[in-house]
Design a binder for these strands. Structure first.
Lengths: 343, 343
DNA sequence: ATTAGCACTCGGGTAACTAGAGTGCTAACA
DNA sequence: TGTTAGCACTCTAGTTACCCGAGTGCTAAT
């Protein structure tokens, strides 16, 4: 168990290092007003903290740097979420100032502003597209043998795929088909589209449309929405601003991870509730072993959720980011729920 | 005027430097089979070439490096576009192997493959969206006071905007409006949409729809398509692979330029025909003074054009890139024109 | 005209030294 | 007994000195 004094010293050390990016020494600390001890005392305590694994030295006679365990303890027990400065609040709230009507726009904008405010990279995950409800289906012929299939969902999102019309299908067949589909499938969530498509429309289609099979396959493809489309980035390049990253190779690895959509679920686990902090090697991806990631979820209505992640160096300003994410998560939930309720 | 021998030495020097990224010395060169002169002779010639401004030394006793003037002369007079290896051709042609029906998809894919093949950054500009023709307009109500306006164009592109329905507008008003719009505006290029919207539909709308003004404004907004949507990147991170870029600050500047859509027209001048090479400071943007950019245009049908750009270090493999762009430009033109003609 | 020879230059690597910041330990102090 | 002053020690970062090697420019021989 740590003494009061050790806690204080650990906290101040982490705070100082977060702020300065330099190893902190006992002299430096003793000058701070909140530390009434002499350098020698601090040295003793620091030696203990190092023994316990909370601090590290970069070399034998350097100041101390928090270890991952140190950061972990700091965020678990020492984080006093100070209120955000008014200016930050104003900036964050500016996300909602123009009356925007699209969920997507709000999320995009959040990513941008969040990254500007933090100087870290922001990743936002929109609500599961699968929960959105089909408002309208249509097929617009483009040429004699191609057409575009369009699905409009209740949140105003429009998904479209161009496809080749199989030979032997007449315009009137398509007409019929789209009518049947609209009759049966409006109001169905995208997640169920697949199933309902087969269950409910198959037999009817077969009766009315010749060669319905090929048309069918195409529609099915349009109904499968890729996950990546739902991820929004802000400040991808902010890593380059961090003095902690000087190794080009590491930057490359990190950016590769963010560029490739397949890694996103590892950074931003879908479906976890509340705020989480992953520090350094606690992250699943080895490319992120020098990063910390703070994630928080937000809700839209009772069912849908999304997440926000901030990716920065381990020496991240946890206090500030946590406050910001708390605020934004609440605001987003409120605002998006309001927009959603209006339906 | 340069002698034959000087030309040869200049060419080989540039080739060697492009390949090795190291200053080339007289000994090195003399070992090459195409150079039958002694190091001393080469030294003399190189000294002359330096005097003429084609070569530079990084320091007094180093080998030579091409100057911008040297590169310029090289690309203007010394570039012997050797045929592409079969493998490159196969890879490039693989862009079209799956039968894709969307222009956008083909272009996206070109950007990706081109960047993978070159290890540089590829930027592709699609044909001017303004020239695409309206196939269908529709408005889908989402809630009591919001709806989404959708424009489908002849190339299968779908543009959509959510908007707030002004108070006092009934669903039947919208119904009427959309019918009128479709009657009058299908077949109109997006560029003219604005004008035609005002000229042809204003008076009719006024007669049939109450408070047509607000609805009108909204539709107008949807009709203005932003340019940026038409730009596709491949291998944004490839700069990090180039040994020429070690300075993080410069990388940052460069990436900033590419991230911000507003600079794209400076990199990729719209409307220029044929192949162009801009070397180092010939580029308009100071962030790109260490880069070379090769651009080429392609055509779709008789009217529409797009461009391809490759951004790499000045020490770029001009020969290879030029051949590739020549090939791709032709292929893209052919293939996209074919897709376009089908309409 | 070409080239061999040679003195010279300069970057980059290595070793030696120094200053400074920081530590750990011991002994004195309250 | 906990705290602190003092001091010897350690290690980094910066500077200087040095050398090696690749490369040059010039001159004289071919």
């Amino acid at each position: 168990m740590l003494t009061e004094r050790q806690l204080l010293i650990l906290k101040v050390t982490v705070d100082d290092y977060i702020q300065s990016a330099q190893p902190v020494g006992s002299n430096q600390l003793s000058k701070k007003s909140e530390i009434p001890f002499s350098p020698a005392t601090i040295r003793n305590e620091m030696a203990d903290l190092e023994g316990l694994g909370f601090l590290e030295k970069t070399h034998t006679s350097s100041g101390r740097v928090p270890s991952e365990k140190g950061y972990r303890y700091y965020v678990d027990h020492l984080l006093t979420p100070k209120p955000l400065p008014q200016q930050d609040i104003v900036q964050l709230r500016s996300i909602f100032q123009d009356k925007i009507t699209e969920t997507e726009e709000v999320i995009k904008r959040s990513a941008m502003i969040l990254s500007e405010l933090t100087n870290y990279t922001a990743i936002l995950l929109g609500p599961d597209v699968g929960k959105h409800i089909v408002k309208k289906l249509s097929i617009v012929p483009l040429t004699t043998d191609t057409a575009v299939a369009i699905i409009v969902t209740d949140n105003g999102h429009v998904e479209n795929r161009v496809f080749t019309i199989p030979e032997g299908i007449s315009p009137s067949d398509i007409e019929k088909m789209i009518n049947i589909l609209n009759e049966r499938l409006v109001g169905v969530p995208l997640n169920d589209l697949h199933r309902r498509l087969e269950q409910e429309t198959m037999t009817i289609l077969r009766q009315h449309v010749k060669r319905y099979g090929e048309l069918f396959t195409t529609l099915r493809q349009a109904a499968v929405l890729p996950h990546e489309e739902n991820v929004y980035f802000g400040g991808k390049l902010n890593i380059l601003k961090q003095p902690d990253f000087h190794d080009i190779q590491k930057i490359r690895n990190l950016m590769d991870v963010m560029e490739g959509a397949k890694h996103i679920p590892m950074i931003l686990p879908i479906g976890t509730q509340g705020l989480h902090i992953r520090i350094g090697s606690e992250n699943a991806l080895s490319a992120m072993e020098d990063c910390s990631v703070i994630t928080v979820s937000y809700d839209i209505g009772e069912e849908q959720t999304g997440s926000i992640a901030i990716v920065g160096p381990k020496r991240m300003d946890y206090k500030r980011i946590v406050s910001m994410l708390d605020l934004l998560s609440g605001d987003l939930s409120k605002e998006l729920t309001r927009m959603f309720r209006a339906k």
